[in-house]
């Protein structure tokens, strides 16, 4: 708590931890938004869908080799915020994003930034497994091919193998790389999608409720995988399951109606929530 108190003094955008929060439309965030070793730095991000203000002045750092989970009730904007981080909101014609989002001190909101290399650096895994209707091999080879990452078939084979190995899928599919990606089970499909994301060597991986369509066993495998991936990647995960957030993440951010209400270490958020809304949510009073 001491470390965070010092940081709070330095940052005007944070507020000391006295249980405020009767005011529902809090514009300020409780807790420590900064990270010791930030890879992505978001400041005063606002998102509108037409006239609907979906994200309100959210500022948050995402640190190197950490898993940060974003929780909150449905429609709180956590997925929208995640999609800002690799500019996936560009594909929604009504969406408008304002504010500053930096990846390694480079402003990604800048219209002159090419989204193609950005999305190769910031990969994304979706809620529903979405393998392409191609073979397992082609699903993985797709990314390296469009980015020209390999020079020969042998190199590509190797990259496919290492990607599948890192996603923990290699042993299960090595004998049927020509089978269709859609023929796998749901959990395998999701690991295939993770392998696909890893194949282009991203630095940050965004996961949008990656386990919500999976059974508990497949979920456990993916959670284990996330923990292993942390050593090499920076991971931001949106989840509906508070247990999952508690299991996989080091930091947790609580969103409510487009506001980032509270952010802190996962332990603190779940054991000593500072904000009334956070406490209500994690104790199951709503959401």
């Amino acid at each position: 708590m001491n470390a965070s108190a010092e940081a709070i003094a330095a940052k005007p955008s944070t507020v000391t931890a006295d249980k405020l929060g009767q005011d529902q439309s809090t514009a300020t965030t409780v807790g420590e938004i900064t990270s010791a070793n930030p890879r992505m730095r978001c400041r005063e991000v606002n998102v509108w869908y037409d006239d609907n203000h979906a994200i309100k002045d959210v500022s948050l750092d995402i640190g190197q080799n950490e898993v940060i989970s974003m929780i909150g009730p449905s429609g709180c904007g956590k997925s929208t915020f995640l999609r800002c981080l690799n500019r996936m909101n560009d594909t929604i014609s009504t969406a408008r994003v304002e504010g500053s989002i930096q990846l390694d001190d480079q402003e990604i909101q800048d219209k002159s930034i090419d989204v193609v290399p950005l999305r190769a650096r910031v990969g994304m895994v979706f809620q529903k497994p979405n393998p392409f209707p191609k073979s397992i091999y082609e699903n993985i080879a797709y990314g390296p091919r469009i980015h020209g990452l390999t020079n020969s078939r042998a190199e590509l084979d190797e990259l496919v193998e290492t990607s599948l190995q890192r996603a923990g899928l290699w042993k299960e599919v090595k004998d049927r790389l020509d089978a269709s990606g859609t023929s796998l089970s749901g959990g395998q499909q999701q690991r295939l999608c993770i392998a696909r994301t890893l194949s282009v060597s991203p630095e940050v991986i965004l996961m949008d409720e990656p386990c919500s369509a999976l059974d508990p066993i497949a979920t456990a495998i993916i959670e284990e995988l996330i923990d292993e991936l942390r050593a090499q990647y920076t991971i931001a995960i949106v989840t509906h399951s508070m247990q999952q957030a508690a299991r996989v993440s080091q930091r947790t951010a609580y969103f409510h109606l487009g506001d980032l209400v509270e952010v802190g270490t996962t332990d603190d958020i779940f054991n000593q929530p500072q904000h009334k809304l956070t406490e209500d949510y994690i104790t199951g009073r709503f959401g």
């Binding site: 690799n86 996936m88 594909t91 989204v115 193609v116 290399p117 950005l118 999305r119 190769a120 990969g123 994304m124 979706f126 529903k128 979405n130 393998p131 392409f132 209707p133 191609k134 797709y142 990314g143 469009i146 980015h147 999608c193 696909r196 994301t197 282009v200």
Partner: peptide
């Protein structure tokens, strides 16, 4: 063709025409 296919392809850094040629069209 489900939007998820497009999202998956864009999220890998594919351009629109790559997505159409290599994902949407085969699907």
């Amino acid at each position: 063709v489900p939007q998820a296919m497009r999202d998956g392809s864009y999220a890998l850094g594919a351009t629109q025409s790559e997505t159409i040629r290599r994902v949407i069209f085969p699907a």
